[in-house]
Amino acid sequence: MHEEIIISGFGGQGVLLAGKLLCIAAMREGKHVSHIPSYGAEMRGGTAHCKVIISDEEISSPVIEHPTIVLALNAPSMHKFEPKMVEGGLMLYNSSLIQDKPSRSDIRVECVNANDISEAAGSLKAANMAALGYLLKVKPEIASMDALKEALDEAISARNKKHNPVNIKIMEAGYRS
């Protein structure tokens, strides 16, 4: 297994955290991982993304030129990264916020109502968690749901841990959707 994943959305949608959680989950299950965020003024007002690699082998380059998976939480992200994807890659987009469909026919397309799932499960802010849950359903080889839930515990500082139960609920709802 070797996946080169771009997670992208508005600043504030928690794309960097989503990437970290995937990395920690996969790392705890023995995979090699790397994570590069977009940073600085690049992020002001606009979109944020991170580049995550998860692999059975040592990762030579953490830089992603052609993603095998794109997780797009908003429309500009989908349009930005779709053309760069490898043939046969997976585009998973947030159908709560994205009306258009990807135009390429040589990629696999999946969608998840991430905001709706999050809202239904009790948070307006955890679309990223719903999307992660769904991603692990369609790509179980990346990491197990158990590892993802444990990653949350590892990644979130003590001060913010009180949201973890809701986030876990939303991950699970995304997984089941």
Partner: peptide, 10 residues
């Protein structure tokens, strides 16, 4: 460089 500084790895 900026990439190394921003990058997370185990």
């Amino acid at each position: 460089d900026g990439y190394l500084g921003q990058m997370s790895e185990p």
